[in-house]
Simulated scan of single mutants.
Amino acid sequence: MSDVVQFGAIVSTLVLCVVTVLSLIGNLLVIVILLKYENLKSFTNCFVLNLALSALVFTSGLPFLAQYHYLDQWVLGDFACKAHVFVLDSGVYSSVLFLTLMTLQRHRVLVHSLPDGGDKCTCFALCLSVCAWVVSFVAALPATLHVKTQPWYDEAHCMYDSIDWQRAAAYQKIVFFFIVFGIMCFCYSRILTTVLNSPSSKRIRTVKLISVTVVVFVLGWAPYNIVILLWTLSHLDPFKDCNWSINLNYANYITQCLAYSHCCLNPVFHAFVGVTFRTHLKVIVQKILPAPQAAHFATPQLPMFGLDSVSVTRLLVALHPLSSGAESAIEGLGR
């Protein structure tokens, strides 16, 4: 087991530190661009803003987790133990909820041809955002109330006060994941049907954007949820083997890093797949860097999709049956 601890102390700590720095830079940049350049009366922009705030809330708990992995003991006391669990859990749940709201909004705009903004929409988006934060905080409370600093192998650890509550917290996260995954599959399948039935010759590019959005979510969260599901079965005979337990601990470190990276960096991915965000980034870079260096940002590209800004814009115009709100929705399909 010492090899597993050493793996967590080196690899997991390094990944969490890198993710923390990237998340702070990326999400703060997203927030600055939204507040300075974008229309916050748009549902999509409102949810992206909240998603970035959620990522920053989550990121604030990562340094505590990193030191925990590095030292393999909790040295910050009981209050910090509860606070870091609350911050991480509320960040996870709010991230998942805002992804769900963004998915439902895209479905609303692209399938039902409804507007993406307006005064009434702003009020509604604000109410939905407040509700999402309240639900996230409530969902994080049980774990917060049932973790504390306690001795384990002669060292202090931040742990649940009973195995039953630890399993309950694991089941809650798994349920959240499958609900969101089900909603994403339903909404994006309807969106794909709408896009594929449009006369656009470039609809395959939109299909790529949608596919990557779903794949990134699944790769980020599915492995982690599978691992914690297997952990809940560790009391059963087939899963009590020592080698199985060691491999599960390795898998937990790896999948946790994947999931937490997704939670922190997902808003950045969502934002900068959009044409306007990358255009605003170019403006900011040109103000900060000398002209020769800023020139590298002159034509934002999406190599993985074979798309540039002009192509995406033409694609938006070509999607015949969609409402005016569809432009901002498709532009943010990667969000």
Rank of each mutant, 00 (worst) to 15 (best):
T149W: 03
C264L: 09
A80F: 04
V212K: 13
D89E: 13
V312L: 14
L76E: 15
K173L: 04
L28A: 03
K148C: 12
V130D: 10
L29I: 03
P300S: 01
P151G: 03
I330L: 14
L29N: 12
I191Y: 02
P115F: 07
T103G: 08
L319G: 00
C81F: 06
F124A: 06
S311N: 12
L319Y: 08
L76K: 14
L76D: 15
T194M: 12
Y37R: 13
A143D: 15
S94L: 04
N45G: 05
Y160W: 08
L56P: 04
G61W: 03
A140P: 00
A140C: 07
N247M: 06
I183F: 08
Q6N: 14
S136E: 13
L76R: 14
A295M: 13
L319E: 15
Y260M: 14
T313Q: 14
F176D: 09
M1Y: 03
V57A: 11
L65I: 05
A259R: 03
L97R: 06
V207M: 15
A326W: 00
L62G: 01
F217L: 14
P199V: 00
T232E: 14
N266M: 09
V175Q: 09
T44A: 07
F186R: 15
S90E: 06
I284H: 04
M184R: 08
R167T: 04
T206D: 01
F297K: 04
H112K: 13
V312I: 14
L248N: 02
C131H: 10
M184T: 09
Y260K: 03
